[in-house]
Design a protein around this nucleic acid. Sequence first.
DNA 1: CCACTATATAGCGATATTACTATGTCTTCG
DNA 2: CGAAGACATAGTAATATCGCTATATAGTGG
Lengths: 99, 99
Amino acid sequence: MDKKLATHAADVLKAIAHPMRLQIVEALEGSEMCVGDIADALGEKQAITSQQLNIMKDKGILTSRREGAKIFYRIEDPNVVRVLACVYNHCEPRKRGRR
Amino acid sequence: MDKKLATHAADVLKAIAHPMRLQIVEALEGSEMCVGDIADALGEKQAITSQQLNIMKDKGILTSRREGAKIFYRIEDPNVVRVLACVYNHCEPRKRGRR
DNA sequence: CCACTATATAGCGATATTACTATGTCTTCG
DNA sequence: CGAAGACATAGTAATATCGCTATATAGTGG
């Protein structure tokens, strides 16, 4: 991995390395959602939610489509879901395993 | 994923979301290495290399052992290797695929 | 056009990260 | 002990990120 590729990879990781952004990705795993519903689901305000969504959209992690006045976001890069799964394993190394 | 877990997961991701740290993880995938060799392999200085290593050690990603005057680092959390693989896929979505 | 809803963005202070230099701590060797 | 090698850490200035408020933009219905 040369420096340029590493820098790009780091940018992608940084784009999801944030509590709220991880929760957004998780929320969108099931289906697309509009900004307001995402904000409500996370208990966050509209402005900050929109900001986080656009950060991830800029990095190619999410994409959006307009439907009337609402804008629906969905996951564009399926790899982030796998990253999320890996991090889950890190956080709960032995869920429901023996003890 | 509640906020507390999301925060922890984000911390882990942030720990590797850096070009040099990604390269370090990649270098350590094969085997453990001492600080000086890692710095040489990456073409970086000793001080910054040591700093990055300790950031990842603090987060439980790496671990180290002393052998004489040298300190060898190795990967402690195998999940970061999987995260790295996912990011590779992101960066090269269709390597040698048809076209 | 006006009012209202939905979303985006500008601006800002607080905090964190980065990269670097200098220096401190161990360890080995003579 | 004293010097040299290997590694860690303190201090710092530049930059980036965060969370927030206020405001701007775009669409909808009357």
